[in-house]
Design a protein around this nucleic acid. Structure first.
Lengths: 245, 245
DNA sequence: GGGATCGTGTCAGTTCGCTGGCACGGCGGC
DNA sequence: GCCGCCGTGCCAGCGAACTGACACGATCCC
């Protein structure tokens, strides 16, 4: 299902149709985009030199909707950065399937497992046609080991993910299903709508779909949301926030 | 309840009763201990220079059992490292209390919130008399910004915590209470026993104590564990592992 | 336009955990 | 040695979520 795996130059050529500028400039633009995604720059701004080192190592890959980017148990051999589209990170299958996370543009993954030398704990499915930047392990290690700004910023990036993960644990412990559902709707909303089927939402909370559906219909009766095919519109964010505890 | 907050030299003097060697050497020994706790050294060994920079900034504080190290909502003004004892990180109170984590010697906390400039999301209670090393924010920032090895190792440390946190989420989603209990007993065991009251264990899983107690007694009837006052002995680790899914 | 696929809506029976309350027994302080 | 505190053990009634199944509607591919 993998459509292409090629040097960044190829992508840059296709981007150049939109943006203008030469390939080299566009490689830098790509790297600058990644730089904006990794941490924030208050503490450690990237130098142009950092950026070109990063640009030289990024490779672009495209995945069709439904295809697998990596599988649970695979060795992590580098870092993935979602450029466009969405990936579902999940464990198990059938009624035991649990969705750990749904990540979109700007999200970074695989670095943790690479750094720790552990296999990937979940499988990544593309929920839509998705473009992914890949930074191979050796280059990653080289950037971290030689460039302080990059190591410093990457630390912030991982810290943000840890804070988010802890917040999710706090949000799950001892909460009623209703509270958890209100919370996840707010978290997963993009432009006022949650573009996920109920089955996926249920798997993110570790509950069965009928339980989720029951609460969603109740929310809908109260005018909080509108349930559509494969998506949910949020109509009253304030009251949802209030309900999420 | 805070008993003392003083330069590291004071602690070193008390350590010297046990270990021998001058104060300066002992400050280094303290820092070396921290270095072993933060990440592991495969990728970035600490230089003696790194160690003395770290040693110069560590301050020792002691907390009595039951006292509060920091409260939810406090600004994180540095990094805590548990030297001995145990801290319970929890949110809420009464029947809504949720225990996010119980941390022991070698654990690092507060750095995430410091780096991200966010308030601490949980309160830390000392479960036993506890000694904590404190690294103030400015020194921490200075170490990260100037010393690549420290930034690199700290990245590994945070990565380990993120991997652990994700594993916990995976272990909670869609698992039966029995599986979750088997899992948490294995995770929290120290020397074949879990030194926590059932109330705390229940708060770590976000369930009520009677629900936990029922399953524990069932485990005990099957010879998996022995329930004691304020602690649980693990008798059959293999079968518990099997039950944890 | 027709069929396959996927997602939603719903149900009845069952299991499971919660509520809150009380009795008992270690453990520590006085 | 006594008392108070804290932790454990347990129960009955209730409510909530699970199981697994089925009907229907939307969407997509041919």
């Amino acid at each position: 299902m993998e459509l292409s795996k090629q040097p960044a130059e190829t992508l840059q050529r296709s981007i150049s149709l939109l943006g203008g500028g030469g390939p080299a400039e566009l490689a830098i633009r790509q790297a600058a985009w990644v730089a904006r995604c990794v941490g924030h720059g208050d503490a450690a701004p990237f130098t142009p030199d950092d950026l070109s080192a990063l640009a030289a190592s990024l490779r672009t890959t495209t995945f069709e909707r439904g295809s697998v980017v990596f599988r649970a148990g695979d060795e992590a051999d580098g870092v993935w950065i979602v450029r466009s589209g969405r990936l579902e990170l999940s464990v198990g299958a059938g009624s035991k399937r649990a969705v750990v996370h749904v990540i979109g543009p700007g999200a970074v993954d695989g670095d943790i497992q690479y750094l720790l030398g552990m296999p990937l704990p979940y499988t990544a499915h593309a929920l839509a046609d998705t473009t992914v930047l890949f930074l191979d392990g050796e280059s990653f290690e080289g950037l971290l080991g030689n460039r302080l700004a990059i190591a410093r910023r990457w630390l912030t990036s991982v810290a943000m993910r840890l804070a988010e993960s802890q917040e999710r644990i706090i949000g799950m412990l001892g909460r009623s299903l209703t509270e958890q559902i209100a919370r996840i709707l707010l978290e997963e909303a993009v432009d006022g709508a949650v573009p996920l089927p109920q089955r996926t939402l249920a798997a993110m909370l570790g509950v069965q779909r009928p339980s989720l559906n029951k609460t969603l219909k109740e929310f809908e009766r109260n005018g909080l949301i509108k349930v559509r095919y494969g998506a949910i519109d949020l109509l009253d964010v304030d009251r949802l926030t209030e309900m999420s505890g």
